[in-house]
Structures are given as C-alpha cells and as structure tokens.
Nucleic acid binder design. Structure first.
Lengths: 337, 337
DNA sequence: TTTCAACGCGAAAACGTTTTCGAATTGATT
DNA sequence: AATCAATTCGAAAACGTTTTCGCGTTGAAA
C-alpha cells in the first residue's frame, strides 16, 4: 500500500504542497480556515509525513542511540526504561546497541553517527582508556551524554552518582553496626567508579580511626556471583575474624553470602554484608541484602533531559556548557547488616 | 562539521555523482580502475552515504523495531541480546519500545510504521484481544514477526516455544520424583502461553492417572514474587498435603519457596518446586530452582533470521508463506525438586 | 486616489542519494 | 572502411519534505 504524500493532499484540496506543509508545521502565514480544512483532511485520510524526507531536509533524525554493556543487567534495564519513557514523551525513538570493549564501542559509535542520530548516550567500557572515538562525536552534530562510567577528560555533559559518597555511606553503616574489620570486594583497577568506591571505603575507615588493610581488599572484576564466592572463601581462610564485607555489586555480595551461609557463619551477627545497586532480587534473598540503591530509571530520565537541553543549544549554534548531574543514592537496610 | 557528499567525492575525482554512487553499490558498468580509485578515495576521506537520502530513495530503513513488556525482565533482556547481535551482523539497527497494554501497543506500532522500519517484532500484551493493529502492519511494507505471546489468527511468521510440551515435561518430572498432589500457579486466563502451560499441566496429570483438581490451581497473573508467596500460603492452608508446585514463572516459584522455607516445609523432600524460564538467579537461590530453560537469545536470533527471509520475499513482491518456528526448551534440574 | 502594510498563498530550490536511459568510446568483426 | 556489440560513463528524474522568497490581494491610512 503506497502511503500518501503532501502532493496527494495538495491535489485533493486544490492547494499547493507548500501550503499543506506549512499548515502541518504551524506556520503563521496560513489562514485559519484553510489550515483547518487541511488538518481535517489529513486526519481523515490518516496522513503522516515521510520521516526520511523530513530528516533529510531538516538534518535531524529524532532518534537517539544508547550503548549498553553486552550482558543482561538489572540496572541498565531500568536505565533504559527511564530513557525510553522520556524519549517517547518527546517523540524520540531509541536505538539500543551493545558493547563491552573499546573496539566494539568505536564501531557502534560509528554506526550511530552514520545513522545521524541526534544523541548518543554512553557508559564507557572497561578498557576504553582512549577517547578518540568520543571526539568524533563532538565533531559531528550529535550530542554526547556520558553516564555511569564517564571519562574525566572527555568533554560532554554527564549523569552520574557520587560513588565515593555512596561507598562511604555503606561502610559507615557497617561501622555504625559495630563492625571494625571490614573487607571490600572491589571492581577492576581502571574504571573510575571502582576507584571512587574504593576511595570512599578507605577514607571512611580512616575517618573512623580504623586502619586500612590492603589484604582486606579483593578484586572481583566481573562483578558476578562466582567471584564474590571465591573472594569470600579466600578472605575468610586468611582472616577468619572479618566482620563486614562491602561488595561493589549485589551479585558479588550474593556470592559472598552463599559462602558465609555454607560455612554457617551467621549474617549479620558475625559478618555484615552490604552490596551495591539494589538489584531486583536483593530484596528477595534470604537474608535479604542491604545495599545502595542506584536509581536507574531516574538516571535515564536525567540523561534524556540533559540531552534535550544540549541539543537545543547546539541547534542554536551556541557553545554548550557541559553539566554534570549527580543523582542521589540511598542506603537500603535489610537483613544482611 | 559538514559531512561529505557524493557530489564532493565526484568533484574531487573529476567524475559524475552517478559513477561514484555506482562504484559504491557494486554496479557492473564501472571499470575496475575507476572503481578502485573511488574506493580508495572514499576510504581516505572516510565518506559514508547519507542514510536519510538512501532510505528516501530506496524506501527501506535498515532499522527494525521491537516492542517489549514495560518491566525489566531477564528473558526479554536475553531475547533482545539475540536480536541485536543478529541485527548488527546484518547491518540493521534495533529500536526498542515498551508496552504492556493494547492501547499503548497500538501507538507504538504506529510510531514504528511512521518511522518506516523494515520489521516489527512483537509479543502481544495481555489485553490485546483485538488484532486490528497487526493488520495495519500487513498493509504496509513492514514485516511482522510475532514471538512468545502470539495470536493464533493474526497472519505472520512466529517464533515460539512449545509451552504445552514444556509444562508437560515439568509436571512429569515432579511425578517421576514421586509427587502426586501437584499444584499449578498459572498466569492469567487470556494469554495463550498461560493456557497452554495449564493444558500441559492438566493433560500430564491425567496421563499419569492423577485426578485433576481445580482447587490446586491458583492464578498469579503478574507472575511476580509476592503473588507466588500469597498463592503458596493460601494453597497450603487449604491443602497441607500438597507435595509439588509447578509455577508459570521463576519469580512466582521463588515466592512459593520463600513461604515454604518460612513454614519450615522441606524442599524438595516434602514439596518439590519447578519454575519456568531459567531466570538468572534461579541457579543462585538456595535451594536452587529446578526450571524450564527458555532460550531467549536463541529465540532472538531466530526472530531476526525469519525476518530476513520474509523481508526478502516481500521485496520480491511474492506472497510470504508464514512459518512458525518452535524453539526447544529444556528442563534444568536443581535442588528444588 | 494613491500608498503601504499585512495577509495568504505558491514557485522553486534544496536536502543527498539511486536508477533509468542514452551517449560516447572502444575493440572486434565483416 | 563500415558495422556492431560491449564497455564505460553521465544527465536527469525521482524519492517527499521544508524553507526562502516573491507575488497578488486585501483593507486601512494618507
């Protein structure tokens, strides 16, 4: 079925293509009478302008792209939800791509730039030390918004949480519950979020007059359950007197809990555990998991709002002044602490 | 930064726009010499044709759209992953929209049709009794692929699992483990998948000479954890001698398990539990959950493959013969049975 | 009666491709 | 030398919009 065009409408109403187009785009130099006539007819025959032609002419696609990690993850799922909701409100569509490393990230950005999306939302991969691919975006008319794992040096607006503060809250909570020998299962050495959470952990110990011990820190790079289990095993074999664990992920926390339960080590009496993210099941586990709520949906909405702002100033040919929006996190206390 | 056009390339090489375009599109009437010259130059200046113009001219977008339920769900996350992977291989992009009811579903389909996506992948909402919105798709040049919750009457290719058989496997498994009084926590009354799973449950009982009892069936429409807990509570208060539960979702199974544990009812000795979907955490719970693995990623890939086939025949102006691909499921036995 | 501004509309160019068709060149065949 | 087919290329139309600019028509002001 061939879809109607402006030309068809114009012919049917004995008007010019220009007039019809103007009526649909709320130009002021069309009499309200003909405008109404056009609008009525357009509604009747259910016409909607061809997106390709509009995009070609206006040089904007009304599409944004987001690149998410290649694995299924509750946090990103919520984030996506927030972005899509806000996008729909503003008549934007969202293209989702996946990546977990620098090379792929680069390819995906190319893909999106080629599609001439109006905005790209990106959380950097673990091995994205280089940011040349981000500079490619700045050179185009596409707005870049970084979130979660952002680069300090790359120029763009950003939406993040205060990882350091959140980690601090988590550790302080354990201390307040009487824990003194608190271990930390951290992420890799590179991503800024892992560094920040680690710093938050360390500073909070020191602020409370507790000595920081490097051998209490284990790296769980993948942040999955198995690594949490393994780390807990190693840790407790070496230091049976540990009384708290702050994990950088709910999953690693879950793994740690599995080991503790298996060893009949009571939670939270003997060892308190705090996770990070407030993943869906953390409330359903037994014991349920104390964790830091990372409000994905809210972040998603913030990302899109910031995008709209930046796009507007870009269109106005003005210089964008990049903003960094910090989303508040919250400690959710449950049975594990 | 203005991006290059065919015209720019042509001028730089002293050729016509036509020739350049043809070289890039592998036409046969270009000498290999000039073709190479063009390809080299194009690579050097990193030119890529404007998507809007191409789409406008060719009437195809190289984009597909998928509509997923409005909530975060592990299965759909995996499914999406499969679709996106396969899409990327074939240079397609994927637009993701959300819906959980008929009205919204209709709007989203309109959005996608307006965007002139080449394909729409859809799992029907619970209250989509009507399928007029699907017929709108057939009238366009967009390929529809239904998956998971499909309509029997709507004409399109489909990708599904054999819900009846899978349910049968689950129930037979419980029977084989010596269970006789097996309850079923089912989905709503409408979606075909819920009906099919129920039928599988009932038939399998009867085949084994076990009387079907309506009061052993509880409806957990939302399929969440709370409903599973509540249903288990009601069920066991009324029938303390229940020895098996087949839940239509891992989440409801989890809820049931929580109640059982709380009541100190031993799993699987006293009551065996089987879920459905093989959701990420079902392996991590304690006891870990026996469940039916619903291979989301595989389904996603199958969906996209089928789309490519149907699109091809559509382009050739031939009549599409709709296919229904049934993906195999598998029982994953764990501690809960 | 002239002048002028405001109003309502349309012609035409532009966005950047793809594709049809015909023209020019070449080399081989009579 | 003439004919023909194959080869290689380009002119121009088409895809469906948006936007600039100008033109004719009003009605009011001078």
């Amino acid at each position: 079925m061939k879809s109607k065009t402006l030309k068809d409408i114009a012919k049917a109403l004995n008007l010019s293509v220009t007039t019809v187009s103007k009526a649909l785009n709320d130009y002021q130099d069309i009499s309200s009478a003909t405008k109404q006539r056009i609008l009525d007819y357009v509604k009747k025959v259910d016409f909607t302008p061809n997106t390709f032609a509009t995009s070609l002419r206006k040089k904007e696609s009304k599409i944004v792209g987001i690149i998410v990690p290649a694995m299924a993850h509750y946090f990103f799922s919520k984030l996506l939800q927030g972005i899509i909701e806000k996008a729909e409100e503003n008549n934007y569509l969202v293209i989702v791509l996946r990546s977990n490393n620098y090379e792929l990230e680069k390819i995906q950005i190319r893909r999106l730039l080629k599609q001439k999306v109006d905005g790209i939302f990106l959380s950097l991969a673990d091995n994205s030390y280089d940011i040349d691919h981000l500079e490619e975006i700045s050179k185009s008319d596409t707005v870049l918004i970084q979130f979660d794992r952002v680069s300090k040096i790359a120029q763009s607006s950003k939406v993040v949480i205060n990882d350091r503060e959140a980690a601090s809250t988590a550790v302080q909570h354990l201390i307040d519950r009487g824990k003194r020998k608190i271990a930390h299962f951290r992420g890799g050495l590179m991503p800024q979020v892992a560094i920040d959470r680690f710093i938050g952990y360390r500073k909070t110990l020191e602020k409370n007059g507790i000595e920081f011990r490097p051998d209490y820190v284990h790296i769980c790079e993948k942040g999955n359950e198995t690594q949490g289990y393994d780390a807990a095993q190693k840790l407790l074999k070496q230091h049976p007197d540990i009384d708290g664990i702050f994990a950088h992920t709910d999953m690693t926390a879950l793994g740690a809990i599995r080991y503790l339960k298996q060893q009949k080590i009571s939670i939270p009496e003997k060892v308190g555990v705090v996770g990070f993210s407030n993943w869906e099941v953390s409330a359903l586990m037994s014991p349920s998991l104390t964790t830091i709520d990372q409000p994905g949906k809210k972040m998603g909405k913030a990302i899109f709002s910031q995008f709209l702002k930046d796009l507007k100033t870009l269109k106005a040919k003005e210089k964008i002044e990049f903003k960094t929006k910090v989303i508040k996190t919250q400690l959710i206390q449950r049975q594990s602490s």
